[in-house]
Write a protein that binds this DNA or RNA. Structure first.
Lengths: 307, 307
DNA sequence: GTGAAAGCGCTAACAT
DNA sequence: ATGTTAGCGCTTTCAC
């Protein structure tokens, strides 16, 4: 509980001098330094981080909104963010959103209240208009491509790799492909269908699209509905693996499956995958958050056939 | 940038009254409320979280020290912590330690500087003496069993499940078992060897113990050294799975493998596992962090043979 | 080289 | 019901 002014009193110097010595900014005589440092040590003095933040007007806190931590996509982005935050001395605060819009707004409010210096959305439910409205309170960075070009973002450019994947599926003579997605309204869905159309030259039926696949268990539960397909394009290797597992347990002939994110599960089953390099996305998103640039940059995804 | 005193000036009320209205604590007339709320809205006023924290002397920040996020053990604990923090309104700050002692001390310093209300160690390199020394600055909770009973902790009681696992391995006629661990000095190591001795009635050789297994890749790299064993007791399903993968690729006869943490990888390969219920450990650890109790509690691990 | 003092923005005990 | 006032603990400008 000893504060800077305690030290000022005890040493006879002013708070200003003590502050200079303790923070290392500004001049102080050799003698002053010694005396102040000595008594600070004696009193087990520790600077109060909150007071410092208040005086500076910044927390060095960066919030990261994650719908789920379990999902590989998000945890990989988080890894990238942590890597850079660690090197730069920022603190990362996890903000679980559960895809809940109200919650996301609460988190934006934290930015407004200056509890956060910046905020990174790995996914979002709030509208872009809302984001734009909150921009004046601090940097808001997205991890997928926004419609609006005035929102800073880093995202995976998935189209080329997705096309390669579909090209390969086509070469395997898959004619009826099922798409496994996390959210019906996810921004990835249009990308996926776009790439599919580019290769297959047809628009997929609505029945081909299955959404709500977040945890591995979801995949296992949904698997029975996938018998009709001869090809599956999944949103992650873990999802893909659990579909595989169901077919395996039922001893049914398996469709050809493509996963994403290059995970262990896919490697074990030798499932082709699309690596969206999420860690790099996370790193870049972090840089944008602290540099306050309004740029949008993309990372190329990669189709990996042989594992 | 508009502050509480701006509103006080504009409405003609004092800062105190404004504070009462805005924070909802204390009395204020209907009229005062309306006027203050109205001008607050007009000015887009937002309370400053830092100032509030300073006045209260607490941040509601809880730090979680994790050597690695990728490792399932730690991420599962984190999930449990997040679940409870979310429900209680605390903010979770991720503190990556990389098993680095100096770093861990830096994090303890954050507790000392009041940047953190409490800190949870999912693993640690710092000595228990150091922990004890820092206890006066705030709650420090461990996620494994400490030697010292004055340190709050929640940990997995692994012995019974480990014994079951070794019993089973023995029944499978495994006579030369390899132990795969993350750290040579991990607290789990003695638990493991203890359970082994209980069942096999012999002390394992040093060559049976392999450490440094953290990422799945580590396991794959180390696998060639494991040919000598007819049984493997791994520190996670992911590690176990990658050992399996190497043997599979080499088309070598596989040892009998037991994993841990009940992960997808182990499920796919139908490897028996020990579920240490890490999520529950995380939940409990969090409760201890905020309740400031000095208790130590344990969660029973579970051996799962059929997957 | 050092200090006085204002400021950061909010809270809470106390008085009215 | 409302205001006064003294904190919370540090930073920083501007004199001396």
């Amino acid at each position: 509980m000893t504060s800077l002014s305690d030290i000022a009193k005890l040493t006879g110097y002013s708070k200003a001098t003590v502050s200079r010595v303790l923070s290392g900014n500004g001049y102080a005589s050799q003698k002053a330094c010694e005396k102040i440092l000595k008594t600070a040590a004696e009193l087990d003095y520790a600077t109060n981080a909150i007071a410092q933040e208040l005086a500076h007007g910044a927390t060095h806190n960066i919030g990261v909104v994650l719908p789920y931590i379990k999902a590989s996509f998000f945890s990989k982005i988080l890894e990238g963010i942590l890597e850079r935050s660690f090197e730069t001395g920022y603190k990362i605060i996890i903000l679980p959103s559960n895809y809940n819009q109200d919650l996301e707004i609460q988190y934006l409010e934290k930015l407004r209240k200056k509890a956060l210096d910046a905020i990174i959305f790995t996914s979002r439910q709030v509208s872009e208009e809302t984001i734009l409205k909150y921009q004046k309170y601090g940097p808001i960075v997205l991890c997928y491509r926004p419609e609006n070009s005035n929102i800073p973002a880093t995202y995976a450019n998935r189209i080329p790799a997705y096309r390669q994947a579909f090209q390969w599926l086509k070469e395997q003579n898959c004619s009826n492909i099922g798409f496994l997605l996390s959210r019906g309204n996810s921004p990835t869905i249009s990308t996926t269908l776009q790439a599919y159309r580019d290769i297959y030259k047809i628009t997929p039926h609505l029945e081909q699209i299955k959404s709500g696949l977040i945890s591995a268990e979801d995949a296992y539960r949904l698997a029975p509905e996938l018998i009709q397909f001869d090809g599956i394009f999944a949103n992650s290797d873990d999802i893909a693996a659990n579909v595989w597992r169901w077919f395996d347990e039922q001893q049914l002939p398996k469709p050809i499956i493509v996963g994403q994110e290059r995970l262990l599960s896919g490697q074990l089953l030798k499932i082709p995958t699309v690596d969206n390099h999420c860690q790099e996305v996370g790193r870049m998103a972090f840089e944008q958050a602290i540099s306050k640039t309004m740029e949008q940059s993309s990372i190329h995804s990669e189709f990996i056939l042989k594992r």
